[in-house]
């Protein structure tokens, strides 16, 4: 590349790379570090152990577990032996139904939890009203809510969404509240002596100051939403990954069960990556400062 403005004669960069050059720089840096190789190695070792335990040595407790060969050959088969593969429509229907429920639950929980947490962190009086209730409801396991949710809501959809919402609501609210409490007092004072009224302090100090905690909370909350969704789908449901797992178990087909579990893992990971990306976009100030520290 001659004449490129990014690299000077000595090979040192005179200005930060952009576009494709930035992509190439990142890819190059990734290939040169050990991280990606270790990840591949780790996954390989894990698959190997799984294969040895369940399909070669048939260790006790592992006899009934389908091995990686059985699972992967079914997962990628056009005509799967046990009914579920990436070529069957049901597979995508299960994923879609679960994702849709998560989307509803996560949006409701965020829409209610963030404002609630902001108010709880900001107003001591409001905290006195609400915090004891939150702390009492929070430790109740989601499974304990199942009977009540079935009594309260009709059909399959509403109770499941209710349970997932409930679980992530508590996490979001608590983290948001802690986020507000973590804001340094001097920002409030600075805003005050620059002439802000209460609403302006809320908008310019409380909300942005709590954002890092809020997004940490949202990442946990989407994970928690998946836990409770699957638990709910196992108890009541007609579709969804949780239902797929328990239905496969009931019908004594173990491969779809494991396919359901692995799929859940990947989809859950994907959603939390999405939340992280959204967070980094909304907090450029933090992303840039952390990048300068090499993180």
């Amino acid at each position: 590349m001659t004449g490129s403005p990014v690299e000077s004669v000595s090979g040192r960069r005179s200005e930060p790379p952009r576009g494709m050059a930035l992509f190439a720089y990142r890819a190059g840096r990734m290939v040169r570090t050990t991280g990606p190789y270790l990840t591949v190695l780790g996954i390989g070792a894990w698959l190997l152990l799984w294969w040895l335990f369940s399909e070669v040595w048939y260790l006790p407790r592992f006899e009934k577990m389908p091995g990686p060969v059985a699972v992967l050959s079914d997962l990628f088969a056009r005509d799967p032996f046990q009914g579920i593969s990436i070529f069957t429509d049901e597979y995508y229907e299960h994923i879609w139904v679960s994702c849709r429920r998560i989307l509803f639950a996560f949006c409701i929980a965020t829409g209610v939890g963030v404002p609630l947490g902001l108010c709880m962190g900001w107003s001591v009086q409001f905290r006195h009203y609400t915090f004891p209730i939150l702390e009492t409801l929070r430790p109740i396991p989601i499974l304990a809510w199942v009977p009540l949710s079935i009594l309260m809501f009709r059909g399959f959809e509403a109770p499941v969404i209710f349970l997932a919402t409930l679980a992530s609501l508590f996490v979001t609210t608590l983290n948001t509240m802690l986020g507000v409490q973590s804001i340094d007092e001097s920002y409030f004072r600075a805003a005050g002596c620059l002439g802000s009224n209460r609403w302006q302090i809320f908008r310019h100090v409380v909300v942005p100051g709590a954002l890092p905690f809020i997004f940490t909370g949202l990442q946990i909350s989407i994970g928690v939403a998946w836990f409770s969704l699957v638990a709910a789908e196992m108890v009541s449901g007609d579709w969804g990954l949780g239902y797929l797992i328990v239905d496969a178990y009931m019908n004594n087909v173990t491969v779809p069960m494991v396919i359901g579990m692995i799929t859940l893992g990947f989809v859950g990971w994907g959603t939390s990556v999405l939340v992280r990306i959204a967070g980094n976009r909304m907090m450029q100030w933090r992303t840039r400062a952390l990048a300068l520290e090499g993180r």
Binding site: D184, S186, Y187, C193, H204, G209, W285
Partner: peptide
């Protein structure tokens, strides 16, 4: 009352990190 006729510059700095 707090007001912009007396502005404080703080010991550890209190620029809002989320604003340019």
């Amino acid at each position: 009352s707090q007001g912009a006729d007396r502005v404080v510059v703080f010991q550890n700095g209190a620029l809002f990190p989320w604003k340019t």
